[in-house]
Design a protein around this nucleic acid. Structure first.
Length: 480
RNA sequence: GGCCCCGUCGUCUAGCGGCCUAGGACGCUGCCCUCUCAAGGCAGUAACGCCAGUUCAAAUCUGGUCGGGGCUACCA
C-alpha cells in the first residue's frame, strides 16, 4: 500500500485536512505501507512559505510521519508540484497527440456567456464541447501562431465511470455529467486535476484517501489515469467534518487551523484520539486508546460514511483526561512557559520550585494547558487581583471578618510553614468559631487568591509563603 | 436547477433480519465524596426522519418521500 497526503499550501493546515492525514497515516501504519507527503501547489496555487511550513509543523506536532516526499526525499525530486511543471506539460502533449485531449480556443467570457445561457435553458452547465470537433492539426497551428488555447480532456461519450469506493461502495457517474474539463490552462500551467493525477500515477500511489469534496472529481481523475495508460488506485472518500451548524467546517465556526488547538492548550495525543473517533471507532465501547492500539485496529473499511460534527467540548473533555495522565514533570514543563508568558517574565529559581510543588494540583484541575496560568497567578503576581464576583459573594458574609481575624491569629503561630500544620491550625480555628469548613475557609481563600476558585487552600497557603499569606489576609481585612 | 453522497439520543457512535425493553462516550440533571473548583463514583435524561413494501420477524433488506451536505471554474 502506498498512500499520500497532498495538501495545497493555500492556507493553514485545517483540522479536516489533519484528519485526512491521520486516516492516511493510520491506514499505512496498520498495513506496513508507505506514506508520501507532497505539496499540491500547482503553478497557480503556489502558496506562501508560511502555509507550507505550517502544514509540516502541524503534521509533526500530531506525530504523523511520512516515508517519502517533502523534506524526507525520495526518487521523485522535490515533491512539490510547482517544480514539476514540465512533467505535466509532457503528459498533456502525449494526451493531445494520442487524441485523448484537444485544444480549446474559447475565452473565459465566451464560456461564461454560454454557461449562463445553458443554465437559463435548463441544460447542464458544463463545457459544451465546441472545440472538440476542430481539426487537431489546424488547432496546433493556430496555437503556434500565438492564439491562446487551453487543453481539455475528451471524455468518452457516451460512457460511464464506475468505481468501488472503500468507504462508500460502488459509485457511478454517467459521462453526461462529466464535462470536457481543462487539463492545461492557456498559460500552460496544469490544473489540479492533471497535476494531482499525474503525481498519483508517477508516485505509484495505490490508495487515495481524501475528503468527500473530491468525490465528484474522481471520475475525472480516473479518466486521466486511464488516458495515461495506467490503472487507477483504490479510492476512499472520507466524509466531511462539519461545524456545529451542520455546514462544512470553516473559519466562521471559529478555529479551523490546527495550530489554534496547539496554541489553545490541546495535547496532540488528545487531538489524535478525538479526531480518530470522527468516522471511525475502536470497538469494544472504548473511546480512549493509545496511538499504538489505534494503528493496530484501524481499517479503512470500518470508516463511517456519514459526516461528523466537530465537537469541541468532547475534545476538551478528552484533553483533560490526557493532561491528567501526563507525568508531573511533563505537565510542569508544558505549562511553565505559559505561566511565564502570562506574567510577562521568567520565574525565579525559587518560584520554579514553588511551581513544581503546586503544578500537580493544577494538573488535576485543567482541561487545557492554557488554563494553568489562571490557577497560579496569585502565587507569582505582586498584587492580588480580587475577582469582584468572588469578593461580593464571600466577603460580605457576616462571618467573614471574624474568620479572617481568627485565621490571622492562628496562622501567625504556625511553626513549620507547610500544608499539614497550616491545616491543623485552620481546623482548630473552625472549631473555635463553630463554622463549617465551607463558611470558614472561603474568606481565607478569597483573601489570598483573590477568587473563590483556587487550588486546595492549605497547599496554596504553603506555596505562597508565610509573610505573603499574612500580608494578604491583613490587606483583605482592611478592605472589609 | 443538475449530478453525487449521507440520514440511530443535542453531539460522536455500536448495531450488519430475531440477542434491541436500541448499547457506549461527550453534554446536561441529580446524588455521593469534598476546604472552593475540578477530578472520581453512582443514578437519570435522550435516538432508529417519514410512508409503503418484503418477511413469521426490520434500526437492519427494497422503493418512495422528506431533510442535510458536497460538487457544479482556464480554484484546489
Amino acid at each position: 500500500m502506498r498512500a499520500r497526503f497532498a495538501p495545497s499550501p493555500t492556507g493553514y493546515l485545517h483540522v479536516g485536512s489533519a484528519r485526512t492525514a491521520l486516516f492516511n497515516w493510520l491506514a499505512v501504519r496498520n498495513n506496513g505501507g508507505e506514506l508520501v507527503l507532497r505539496s499540491d501547489d500547482t503553478d497557480q496555487a503556489r502558496g506562501s512559505d508560511e502555509y507550507y511550513d505550517d502544514v509540516i509543523e502541524g503534521l509533526r506536532w500530531l506525530g504523523i510521519d511520512w516515508d517519502e516526499g517533502i523534506e524526507t526525499g525520495g526518487p521523485h525530486g522535490s515533491y512539490r508540484q510547482s517544480d514539476r511543471l514540465e512533467r505535466y506539460q509532457q503528459v498533456a502533449v502525449e494526451l493531445r497527440a494520442g487524441r485523448r485531449a484537444y485544444l480549446c480556443f474559447c475565452t473565459s467570457e465566451e464560456l461564461d456567456e454560454r454557461r449562463r445561457q445553458a443554465q437559463a435553458e435548463g441544460r447542464p452547465p458544463g463545457y459544451d464541447g465546441r472545440c472538440r470537433t476542430l481539426d487537431p492539426d489546424e488547432s496546433v497551428s493556430r496555437q503556434q501562431a500565438g492564439e491562446a488555447a487551453a487543453l481539455r480532456l475528451a471524455i468518452p461519450r457516451p460512457g460511464e465511470t464506475v468505481f468501488e469506493d472503500i468507504v462508500r461502495g460502488e459509485v457511478r457517474f454517467g459521462h453526461d455529467n462529466v464535462e470536457d474539463f481543462v487539463l492545461l490552462r492557456s498559460t500552460g500551467s496544469p490544473t489540479y486535476h492533471l497535476a494531482s493525477t499525474v503525481d498519483d500515477v508517477d508516485y505509484e500511489i495505490t490508495h487515495v484517501v481524501r475528503g468527500e469534496d473530491l468525490l465528484s472529481s474522481t471520475p475525472k481523475h480516473i479518466l486521466i489515469t486511464r488516458a495515461m495508460g495506467a490503472e487507477p488506485p483504490a479510492y476512499a472518500h472520507l466524509s466531511l467534518l462539519l461545524g456545529p451548524d451542520g455546514k462544512k467546517l470553516s473559519k466562521r465556526h471559529g478555529d479551523t487551523a490546527l495550530h489554534a488547538y496547539r496554541d489553545g492548550g490541546i495535547l496532540p495525543e488528545a487531538f489524535v484520539n478525538y479526531v480518530a473517533l470522527l468516522g471511525w471507532n475502536f470497538g469494544d465501547d472504548e473511546t480512549v486508546f493509545t496511538r499504538r492500539e489505534m494503528v493496530e485496529r484501524f481499517a479503512l473499511d470500518d470508516v463511517q460514511k456519514n459526516p461528523a460534527i466537530f465537537d469541541n467540548e468532547k475534545l476538551t473533555w478528552m484533553n483533560g483526561l490526557y493532561i491528567r495522565e501526563l507525568d508531573p514533570g511533563a505537565f510542569e514543563s508544558h505549562t511553565r512557559p505559559l505561566v511565564e508568558a502570562d506574567l510577562g517574565r521568567a520565574l525565579t529559581d525559587e518560584e520554579r520550585e514553588t511551581y513544581r510543588e503546586v503544578a500537580p494540583l493544577v494538573q488535576e484541575r485543567v482541561k487545557v494547558l492554557t488554563d494553568a496560568p489562571d490557577q497560579v497567578r496569585f502565587l507569582f503576581a505582586e498584587e492580588v487581583d480580587y475577582d469582584a464576583g468572588s469578593w461580593d459573594k464571600v466577603m460580605t458574609k457576616p462571618e467573614s471578618p471574624r474568620a479572617i481575624d481568627a485565621a490571622l491569629v492562628r496562622l501567625e503561630r504556625v511553626g513549620e510553614w507547610s500544608s499539614g500544620p497550616i491545616e491543623k491550625e485552620l481546623r482548630a480555628m473552625l472549631e473555635d468559631l463553630e463554622l463549617n469548613a465551607r463558611k470558614g475557609l472561603q474568606p481565607v481563600r478569597v483573601a489570598i487568591t483573590g477568587s473563590s476558585i483556587s487550588p486546595p487552600l492549605f497547599e496554596s497557603l504553603a506555596a505562597l509563603g508565610r509573610e505573603r499569606s499574612l500580608d494578604r489576609l491583613r490587606g483583605a481585612r482592611s478592605r472589609l
